[in-house]
Design a protein around this nucleic acid. Structure first.
Lengths: 338, 338
DNA sequence: TTGAAAGCGTTACCAT
DNA sequence: ATGGTAACGCTTTCAA
């Protein structure tokens, strides 16, 4: 049938028997601890290799009180933010033998609790909480757990360690780029002002583009971007550079500009935010956009929970990681006037 | 500092001491095994609740040889297919106390091996292999593992249990819908014919739309869809219904039609495939599309590995799950001619 | 009805 | 240089 080879796993006892030594000797040989003849050690290692012995992490964890396992909790259903983050966490930790439990909770406190308890039962060495916005917390209280918790891209309680991308710096990057291209009449089209990320980006935008530069709050959707740009032109606005709060909005903006017969990047340069590959690279023209380096964020969050789990004492607080600009085709130098 | 409450976990010994009984009595009370006074049982349960005792799954697993843990292996970086699937797996298994290790491998056999071995060391009860296309295998051999493996949305070896969506049925659904609207001149615009999914959908399309109905293979991208439609019109094609191989293509198609001044859904009805929410709902008009029910697929795959892990013998083979049609705004009834 | 003891697979310590 | 033994937290006989 379908599951023939389910050979029972070989244990350290089997290995000891085959090698003709005691279990403790095998253990020491394999872990490079204790003192023993290099020949014996090598021989045991070779035999272990041959019979395909792999130590049972459950038994190991029982003794060491470390499971080499961490939990990643998220309420970001699409995985827009979670997957890159997860990739970073995973990449940083595989080599240390750490595996990651992924738990997707859909803003359901009950399910969230169940997931968290399941992870705790499994003795995870730590938990990374993540989500889709930095100013909202997950629907579950993680503050009195017996394991360290690190927050990444979601709000943590006071005194927690939280990782986030530097929205202001990212926005500055985008605006500075537009300015460097000679674009002077800038507009910012973004999501709802209830999002702190939107506000921070907007403030950074104003700082560089001038306090009077228009900021248009709306939704994080294409249609919102498109309508904003249509309204703008209807009202006589004629920016030559548009910085968008995310890539979806940017697509809508480009869409709207096409409808208006305005050339991108000829007449107007457009910059997005998120570098959501699938959206940014498929737009026409491909989108120049800000990348939040979520993978790096994940990597650091992963390393941090692990360090906390090993007993290191780290300063609590918010840690902002820099963004970078990914240049594609939606921006060009402003035409020389005379 | 940041990790104050790391109280050492309470064990069954603590609980036994508090309750004034032996560990074995506690164990039996909590597991509803053995015989004992209902009052004692209730009292122990209550105390367990009070002091927040939760059994150590590592210890439990050591004994029972079950870790209540499974691994999900994927090479789908964007998570387009993996996340819905994962949601299904997770949803079906949380209640059974099973947690899921997610391992994203990027077509790197080396990393894949490392991940698989890490999971095996952790004594996973089974592995679900998944990916981004049904006719390619993951870059790692999973066929001689000591745990059951189920394949979902990725190719498995002969005699394995594989879950996939029913591409033909999904395509039929789409085409039948177009026909039911009175659309008669149908075209299919899809991805590369190297994808078996593309071919199967195309065949199903031809079966219903007529053997002569045009099938245009291209890429799975927006630009490919747009160009196909532009070419089509340039060459004088005037379909009134377009079935697209995926939602990205459908977006491109709609985009191209707008450029041509063709109304969707007035002049042409468009159906997509995938129901990639973020793409389908944001297109103008929102996309009517085929949903592969990946969540259900995940649920079944999850239940199946678990069953195999419990020793059940199941028939190997490919199991196709039905798709459903999600109606949005991109289709309408054909105008009455006279 | 309850408890003592063995054992799951591993590591650490102390003898030999 | 190597091996015996205890211990990690739990479940499961088996005895009382």
């Amino acid at each position: 049938m379908a599951q023939e080879q389910k050979s029972s796993r070989t244990t350290i006892h089997d290995l000891a028997r085959v090698a003709g030594v005691s279990v403790s000797t095998v253990s020491k040989a394999l872990n490079d601890t204790g003192r023993m003849g290099e020949d014996t050690r090598a021989r045991i290692k070779r035999i272990a290799e041959e019979i395909g012995f792999r130590p049972n992490a459950l038994a190991r964890g029982l003794l060491s009180r470390r499971s080499f396992t961490i939990g990643l909790l998220t309420n970001d259903t699409y995985g827009r933010f979670t997957l890159p983050l997860m990739a970073g966490v995973s990449e940083a930790l595989v080599d240390k033998g750490v595996s990651v439990f992924l738990c997707a909770i859909e803003d359901d406190p009950e399910r969230a609790r169940v997931h968290v308890e399941a992870m705790l039962d499994k003795q995870v060495d730590g938990i990374i909480a993540t989500g889709k916005r930095i100013d909202r917390a997950l629907p579950v209280d993680l503050s009195n757990l017996p394991v360290p918790v690190v927050y990444a891209f979601t709000a943590g309680p006071p005194n927690s360690i939280t990782y986030a991308s530097d929205d202001a710096q990212g926005a500055e990057l985008a605006v500075a780029y537009l300015l460097s291209l000679g674009r002077t009449r800038l507009v910012h089209i973004t999501g709802p002002d209830m999002f702190i990320a939107a506000v921070e980006r907007a403030e950074a935008f104003r700082k560089l583009a001038g306090e009077g530069a228009p900021v248009l709050y709306g939704q994080w959707t294409e249609s919102s971007g498109r309508e904003a740009v249509l309204d703008l032109w209807r009202q006589g606005g004629r920016p030559d550079g548009i910085f968008c709060g995310n890539d979806m909005i940017a697509r809508g903006v480009i869409d709207g500009l096409r409808e208006l017969g305005v050339s991108v990047p000829g007449d107007v340069s457009v910059v997005g935010f998120d570098n959501w590959e699938i959206v940014a690279s498929q737009s026409r023209p491909p989108l120049t956009t800000v990348d939040m380096n979520l993978k790096e964020l994940g990597r650091q969050a992963g390393l941090t929970v692990l360090a906390l789990g090993e007993g290191q004492i780290l300063e609590p607080g918010l840690r902002k990681l820099g963004c970078s600009l990914v240049v594609r085709g939606s921006c060009s130098h402003a035409p020389i006037d005379e």
